[in-house]
């Protein structure tokens, strides 16, 4: 089955039809999606700015990352579930769209960077501890990746 036939089948399922018929459904799910993005970006911003040595340099990296890392997993779960609902409601807009798949790869990269660099920072107790190798460029790269994810998200609606 091609992606296109699958999209057409999904589009016609009673669930997808029900989602589209409730006028409030898509805007409400999109709003929750944006709120989860804001939580993810807020958490990523503070953690990564600390790892990049820009803010809170008088606090141990672990003390900063410990506060925000636990928000990122649940935010991802909310993003994936609301995203799934949006795909079910309008499969043609996403599954056959290259920008959507680029976004998915970027989301994976964002979380790989988080696991690879923010998690190890949890062990950096002293304020002046030597950072994990490449932590600074990884911190900036992570922020750029989240910004690119937002760009792709908006452009899905136009491509």
């Amino acid at each position: 089955m091609s992606i296109q036939t699958f999209s057409q089948w999904l589009y016609a399922t009673p669930l997808a039809v029900a989602f589209r018929e409730m006028v409030w459904f898509i805007p409400t799910v999109q709003t929750i999606h944006i709120l989860a993005i804001a939580i993810l970006v807020g958490a990523a911003l503070v953690s990564n700015l600390r790892l990049a040595g820009i803010i809170a340099t008088d606090e141990a990296p672990a003390a900063v990352v410990r506060r925000y890392l636990p928000w990122m997993g649940p935010a991802l779960i909310v993003l994936l579930s609301t995203g799934l609902l949006l795909v079910i409601a309008e499969p043609g807009r996403t599954l056959g769209n290259t920008v959507f798949w680029v976004k998915m790869v970027l989301v994976l990269s964002g979380f790989a960077l988080t696991r690879g660099f923010q998690k190890p920072a949890l062990a950096l107790q002293p304020v002046g501890a030597a950072p994990v190798a490449l932590a600074k460029p990884a911190a900036w790269l992570s922020l750029a990746v989240w910004a690119a994810v937002i760009f792709c998200g908006r452009f899905i609606a136009y491509t």
Partner: peptide, 28 residues
């Protein structure tokens, strides 16, 4: 897209301050 990035930064940072104002611990 820039508008959404701005919203994420505004709400993301305000949320950290607001949650601290409510009584949740922040990094400060």
């Amino acid at each position: 897209s820039f508008h959404v990035i701005a919203i994420a930064l505004v709400f993301g940072t305000i949320l950290i301050v607001d949650l601290r104002l409510i009584g949740f611990a922040a990094h400060r």
